[in-house]
Amino acid sequence: MTRVRGNPQRQGLIAGLLAAVFFGLSAPLISVVSQEGSPLMIAALLYAGAGIALLMVRGFRGQQQQESPVQRRDLPPLLGLTVLGGMVGPICLVQGLTLLSAGSASLLLNLEAVFTLLIAVLIGREHLGRRGLIAAVLILSGAVLLTEGSLHGATLQGTLLIAGACLAWGIDNNLSQRLSQRDPLQIAMLKAIGASTPMLLLALAAGQSLPAWPVLLGLLVIGAMGYGLSIWLDLLALRHLGAARESVVFSTAPFVGVLFSVMVLREAFTSGMGTASALMLLGVAVLLKEDHAHWHRHDAFSHAHRHRHDPTGGDPHHSHDHPRNDQLSSDPQQAYWHAHEHQHAPIEHEHAHVSDVHHRHGHRQGG
């Protein structure tokens, strides 16, 4: 039994920011060792490190009974995000890092937020309110300001490779959001193992050798933090925030990469970087204050996922009854988390919400 704690949207924001920090640090770190092996081998070792880290987390936490496991109908999107996000994206990134400076490549990663946001709003029918739009404009304006001042000397090929990685991750983020109601740790593990194993086998079959053990160990550690823990935390953010808002939060990752490049790799820090940093941080603060609420209707449907059972009415979307032997709380008046197949009855109400799996309704212009 897991008691209800805190605000899920606030928890999603914190998880998204932590994921951004871990991923933001990974790009400049990878650039240091990007010449030590082929992009395929480096990408394979990064995701091998991710898989090892996630297996350790799974062993520490044990089987989480309050999570909904992956089902057969989830396999197509899981395959898509594994190939695009776990293989295509990292290979393009590593290849691009061999052609660009760490700062330039980190800043170009802002394109991931643009692609994720456009796909989520235009194709995924997610809603982004006024505050969300303001936050997106602030952060992406900072990204444009940074990128414009730091692409000197970057090759077109390197830029296109980073853009290709961002497009792959933008599609990955939207596919992941559709699976975010499943066990996020299981999704992240399957993605990491499913991506690293074929890439490693292909690299070895092509005659590529493993890098020297200090580099190998470094890549495993970078992958554990920048891809393993980051993917898991980002799935939690996608669950609570939706892909559009997650993309705004995650777009702070390039800022982290630039800060690391300046402070550790000793790259130049310009006044434009300072202004852009302020814009990006202000955008996150605006997003934190967002409160989207209006009258809306839920149609009847059924699905399985982790949800809060709250007899006091704190979660009107999950007020269904449970068989007596399914009552997981010793006190039936206490809220708790669990997962099972359940039916949603039609309901109309008004409350604050985001574009999660329960709120894919239309919005009137200006609403």
Rank of each mutant, 00 (worst) to 15 (best):
R3A: 13
G6I: 12
G6T: 14
G6P: 14
G16K: 02
A19Q: 00
A20E: 11
G24P: 04
L25G: 13
S26C: 02
L29H: 00
S34W: 01
G37H: 09
P39Y: 08
A44C: 10
Y47E: 03
A48M: 09
A48Y: 02
G51F: 00
I52V: 10
V57H: 04
Q65K: 07
S68Y: 05
S68H: 15
R73T: 12
P76R: 11
G80S: 11
V83K: 09
G85M: 13
G89V: 07
I91G: 03
L93V: 14
G96E: 01
G96Y: 08
L100M: 06
S101P: 04
A102K: 01
S104N: 07
A105N: 03
L107Q: 03
H127Y: 10
G129M: 10
A135T: 14
A136W: 12
S141N: 09
G142K: 05
G142S: 04
A143V: 09
L145A: 11
G149W: 05
G158Q: 03
I162M: 03
A163E: 08
A165Q: 08
A165Y: 02
W169R: 01
I171R: 05
I171C: 01
D172E: 12
D172R: 01
N173C: 00
L175P: 00
R178G: 14
S180I: 03
Q181P: 03
Q181H: 15
D183P: 08
I187M: 01
I187V: 14
A188S: 13
A192V: 00
I193E: 08
S196K: 01
T197Q: 02
P198Q: 11
L200P: 06
Q208S: 15
Q208C: 09
V215E: 02
L216N: 07
L217E: 02
V221E: 04
V221H: 10
I222W: 04
G228I: 03
W232D: 07
D234A: 12
L235H: 14
A237Y: 12
R245T: 08
F250N: 02
V256Q: 02
V256N: 03
V258A: 15
V258K: 00
S261P: 04
V262W: 11
F269P: 02
T270A: 08
T275R: 01
T275F: 12
S277T: 15
L279W: 10
M280L: 03
V286T: 13
L288P: 00
L288V: 04
D291F: 02
H292D: 15
H294C: 10
W295N: 10
R297K: 10
D299K: 05
F301I: 10
A304Q: 15
H305E: 15
R308V: 15
T312N: 09
G314D: 12
D315Q: 11
S319C: 08
H322L: 15
P323D: 13
Q327S: 12
S329N: 12
D331E: 08
D331G: 05
P332I: 05
Q333A: 15
H338L: 04
Q343P: 04
A345Y: 13
A345M: 09
A345S: 12
E348A: 14
H349C: 03
A352M: 06
V354L: 07
D356K: 06
H358M: 09
R364A: 14
